[in-house]
C-alpha cells in the first residue's frame, strides 16, 4: 500500500488538504501520513474518498471535519469539534478529544480512546460515537439520531432535549438532562451496542453492564405544563 507523508513543518495545511481532496481514483486505498501536526486546526477536513490518513500527534480544532468515506487516525489528542458533521467513514482518536466531538455528525464511526470534553455528540444526526473514557457535561444535547456509547462516566445534563438518539453508559451519570430517561435494554439496542463495542476495539466490555438512555418524548410538542423544561 502506497504511503505518502506530509510534514506540516515543511508543507502548508492547504497543500495537505488540497491533496486529500484529489479525485477518488487517485486516493482510494492510499495511506497519507501527516507528520508534526502540532495541534494545527482543520487537518484532513472535507475528505470524500476511501483514503487512510494518520495524523502523527495532536490535532487542533475540527480534525476530519465533514468526513466522507475516509479512515482518519489521530495518534494524539484532538481539539474541539473532531469529526464534526461527519457523513461516513471512521475517525479514531487515540488520545483525548476536546469539546463537541462528533457534533452534528450524520454517519460513520467516531472512536475516542480517552475522555471527551463537554457536549460530546451535540446535535448528532446519525453518527455512532464510542468513548473509551468519560464524557463532559451536556453531552448528546439535542441529539437527533445515532448512538453514543460511553464506557466511563457522564457529566451533568446528559442527553438534554434528546430526540431519537440512543445513549449507552457504563459508568456513573452526574445528572440527566430534560426529557432524557433510562430505557429497558431491548434486543435491538443491545445488538447495536455489541456491534459498536466490537467495531471500536472494546469487544471485552460486557454489554450487560451498560444503561440505555433515550428520549421521554415529552418535549416533542410544546405544552405549557412542560415550560420549565425548555
Amino acid at each position: 500500500m502506497e504511503t505518502i507523508t506530509f510534514d506540516l513543518d515543511q508543507h502548508t495545511l492547504r497543500e495537505v488538504n488540497q491533496y486529500l481532496h484529489s479525485d477518488a481514483a487517485e486516493l482510494n486505498g492510499k495511506t497519507v501520513t501527516v507528520a508534526n501536526p502540532n495541534g494545527s486546526h482543520n487537518i484532513a477536513v472535507g475528505l470524500k474518498s476511501d483514503v487512510n490518513v494518520t495524523i502523527q500527534g495532536h490535532a487542533g480544532y475540527y480534525a476530519a471535519g465533514m468526513n466522507q468515506l475516509a479512515n482518519v487516525v489521530i495518534e494524539g489528542s484532538a481539539g474541539t469539534g473532531v469529526a464534526e458533521n461527519m457523513m461516513s467513514g471512521r475517525v479514531h482518536v487515540k488520545g483525548f478529544a476536546s469539546n463537541a466531538a462528533g457534533a452534528t455528525a450524520n454517519g460513520g464511526l467516531l472512536v475516542i480512546d480517552g475522555d471527551a470534553g463537554l457536549r460530546c455528540g451535540i446535535s448528532m444526526k446519525g453518527v455512532n460515537i464510542v468513548v473509551g473514557g468519560s464524557v463532559g457535561s451536556f453531552s448528546a444535547f439535542m441529539a437527533q439520531a445515532g448512538n453514543l456509547v460511553i464506557l466511563g462516566d457522564a457529566g451533568e445534563a446528559l442527553g438534554d432535549s434528546l430526540y431519537e438518539a440512543r445513549i449507552f453508559v457504563r459508568g456513573s451519570i452526574q445528572s440527566l438532562g430534560a426529557d432524557c430517561e433510562e430505557k429497558p435494554m431491548d434486543a435491538e439496542s443491545r445488538q447495536i451496542l455489541v456491534n459498536l463495542l466490537a467495531e471500536s476495539g472494546h469487544q471485552d466490555a460486557d454489554p450487560d453492564s451498560f444503561t440505555l438512555l433515550g428520549s421521554a418524548r415529552k418535549l416533542y410538542n410544546f405544552h405549557v405544563d412542560n415550560a420549565g423544561d425548555y
Binding site: 487542533g60 480544532y61 475540527y62 469539534g81 469539546n99 450524520n106 446535535s123 439535542m142 416533542y220 410538542n221
Partner: peptide, 29 residues
C-alpha cells in the same frame, strides 16, 4: 433527521464554536 410532526427546535448557538476566535477557525475549516 427528525420524527414527523415533532416541534423542530433550532439551537441559538453553534454547537462547535463559541466566540470570535473560534469563528475564525470555523471559517478557515
Amino acid at each position: 433527521c427528525l420524527p414527523k410532526g415533532v416541534d423542530q427546535r433550532s439551537a441559538c448557538r453553534h454547537p462547535d464554536w463559541t466566540g470570535p476566535d473560534d469563528l475564525e477557525i470555523k471559517i478557515a475549516e
